[in-house]
């Protein structure tokens, strides 16, 4: 168990190192930091001094180690566009994205899981057929279409929710939250639903397939043959087996939600990381793009790590090293 844990952590670190290297190559080979950071009339001596200061005369490996060293000490480089520290820029945008991901995860859980169970337990009922039909829309409609449709209906026609922004936010020691104000909640509902639309249908289909499969298995038949109630059979005996793959997929999806909320944030002008990434791409702000890349990689890897470490808790077959 300890070996398993340590092994997973080492793997995670290795992948992060590789991602960092790719991001570093991006910074090191794209664009000309001297041309951007120095005024055009700068002298050769000034150029030379900056080259020395930025360490551009060092060999590639040395520069990479320097880059890593800086990141470990909270130095993520300077944005070409704003001349601000990249770390501070990302930190300022992070709360908006994380809150959006969190609320959309809640929507996914509270809508997707119950509907998935209904569709898996009673696949031929009217409700299940209806859900499956609607869920095709959730899978096939692109995010931005869902977002624009929701804006057209709930913002433009009905006027219930704002079509952009976060509403009023409260600063909690550096973390600006919109979840403590009414307008914040109003603002987050539409983007959260947009972001959740795909995840919900995904969870429904995943749970349904899993439950249908487990429901056919011999051990479920045997549980029925022992007279266990349908509630016990489904919720204790079948769900436990269906949960593992569903949690895996859900967690990977959470990574997606945090990482690639770009489109949804674009549609709703949500001031999160996705919008920052869009702005950086438009102005070729390589350092920000690179750090964003590393950040997304880290989020994915850490979520994966937690999922894998939680497997043995759910499935005794994975508890190695037990007598």
């Amino acid at each position: 168990m300890i070996i398993y844990t340590v092994g997973r952590i080492l793997q995670t670190l290795l992948v992060l190192l590789v991602i960092s290297f790719i991001a570093f190559l991006l910074v090191a080979t794209l664009g000309d930091p001297l041309g951007i950071l120095l005024p055009p009339e700068a002298s050769l001596a000034e150029r030379q001094e900056l080259i020395l200061r930025l360490g551009l005369d060092q060999p590639m490996l040395g520069r990479f180690l320097h880059f890593l060293w800086g990141m470990l000490h909270g130095d993520f480089g300077l944005s070409y566009r704003t001349q601000q520290g990249v770390g501070a820029m990302i930190a300022a945008r992070l709360p908006a994205t994380i809150e959006l991901a969190f609320v959309s995860l809640l929507v996914t859980l509270f809508v997707g899981v119950p509907l998935g169970i209904v569709c898996g337990v009673k696949p031929n009922s009217v409700v299940s057929r209806g859900v499956m039909l609607v869920s095709i829309a959730g899978i096939t409609l692109p995010n931005f279409v869902v977002g624009v449709l929701l804006i057209a209906i709930f913002s433009v026609q009905l006027g219930w929710f704002p079509s952009f922004g976060r509403g009023h936010t409260v600063d909690l020691g550096g973390w600006t939250t919109g979840l403590l104000t009414v307008s914040g909640w109003q603002a987050i509902i539409l983007p959260a639903i947009t972001l959740a639309a795909f995840q919900v249908t995904f969870v429904i289909r995943m749970l349904r397939t899993q439950l249908l499969e487990v429901g056919q298995s011999e051990h479920i038949r045997f549980a029925r043959a022992r007279g266990l109630s349908e509630r016990t059979v489904w919720f204790s005996y079948a769900m436990r087996n269906a949960l593992l793959p569903t949690i895996t997929m859900l967690a990977l999806q959470l990574g997606n939600v945090i990482a690639f909320s770009v489109v949804t944030e674009g549609v709703f002008a949500w001031p999160g990381l996705g919008s920052l990434f869009l702005q950086s791409v438009q102005s070729a702000d390589i350092p920000v793009i690179a750090i964003y890349l590393i950040f997304v990689g880290a989020v994915f890897m850490i979520i994966n790590l937690f999922v894998e470490l939680s497997y043995p808790l759910l499935d005794p077959r994975l508890r190695k090293g037990r007598a």
Binding site: R224, A225, R226, G227, L228, R240, P316
Partner: peptide, 24 residues
Amino acid sequence: RRVRGKRVGFIFQDPMTSLNPVLT
């Protein structure tokens, strides 16, 4: 469901698949 298990027990054929793998 009150008869199954209580009045009529059923022994399944394949012990490798008849037990729930995730419950003790």
